[in-house]
């Protein structure tokens, strides 16, 4: 595959805690291609979330590199197209990576509309009217156009997570990172969130999803990564991972969750 198709290249990524006593990530190497829907599965404490949060540097890796659009975001400086050394501004790279959290993290002191328009207006200097129009369009897309003036506390968990997704989409990211987006939801609300994610995948969005929803991994994902003890133990298309697992840890894991 051509280099230009590789959106994120992770190489030998390590994250140690307690001066190396705990290896949350232990040499993970993987490429995320444009249009990939990469689903990361594994037992709890396997480093899935640490891996995902490292991608936009919410966790600072101990060693290894992450190339995003060809720029190593783990270094303080990089060479631009003209070969000049420039200082890395992580805020600019984060704008291109939308993130959805397990606990939604909507801003409780703002209306839904303000939640969505704050970053585009302040960070991208989008005119207010344009940002609000865009927000209303996205709200309609997830069926919440009537909740623009509501506050987060007035919404159900599923509604909050759908808002969190479209809030991230407001920045027009190149990739969306999902950190267990349905784990904090009541069971009957999981479907509505997964449906939005499915539509997003079908629209061609590049996605990295950490989840325990094996049905979603199987149906929507085009690649599945299995992690345990901070290591990437097995990867492949869902049919292979679920139909013909090789690693004993994966077999053991699937026997418990399926």
């Amino acid at each position: 595959m051509a280099t230009s198709d590789k959106l994120i290249q992770v190489k030998d990524l390590c994250k140690y805690y307690n001066r190396g006593a705990l290896h949350a990530l232990d040499g993970v190497t993987v490429d995320v291609n444009k249009g990939d829907v990469m689903v990361v599965i594994g037992p709890s404490g396997s480093g899935k979330s640490t891996f995902l949060r490292s991608l936009n540097l919410l966790e600072t890796p101990t060693s290894g590199s992450i190339l995003f659009d060809g720029v190593d975001i783990t270094k303080k400086r990089y060479k631009d197209e003209t070969g000049k050394t420039v200082k890395l501004n992580i805020d600019i790279h984060r704008q291109k990576m939308g993130m959805v959290f397990q606990h939604f993290n909507l801003f409780p002191h703002m209306t839904i509309l303000d939640n969505m328009t704050l970053a585009p207006i302040q960070v991208k200097h989008m005119p207010k009217a344009q940002a609000e129009e865009k927000a209303k369009g996205l709200l309609a897309r997830v069926g919440l156009e009537d909740r623009a003036a509501a506050y987060p506390i007035q919404l159900s968990g599923g509604q909050k997570q759908r808002i969190a997704i479209v809030r991230a989409l407001m920045m027009e990211p190149e990739v969306m990172l999902f950190d267990e987006p349905t784990s904090a939801l009541d069971p009957e609300m999981v479907g509505e969130v997964l449906n939005v994610m499915k539509e997003l995948a079908q629209a061609g969005m590049t996605m990295v999803v950490v989840t325990h929803e094996m049905g979603f991994a199987r149906e929507v994902g085009n690649r599945v990564l299995f992690m345990a003890d901070g290591k990437l133990l097995e990867q492949g298309p869902p049919e292979q991972i679920f139909g013909n697992p090789v690693h004993p840890r994966l077999k053991d894991f699937l026997s418990k969750v399926l």
């Binding site: 919410l58 805020d91 704050l118 970053a119 991230a168």
Partner: peptide, 26 residues
């Protein structure tokens, strides 16, 4: 909650913007 800072920063907001619009008002 630290999640508020993480959400703001992951939207590309600077530390100063995060403090001003998200943390201090709450």
């Amino acid at each position: 909650d630290l999640g508020q800072t993480e959400a703001a920063r992951s939207l590309g907001m600077t530390p100063v913007q995060t403090m001003r619009f998200i943390i201090l008002p709450q």
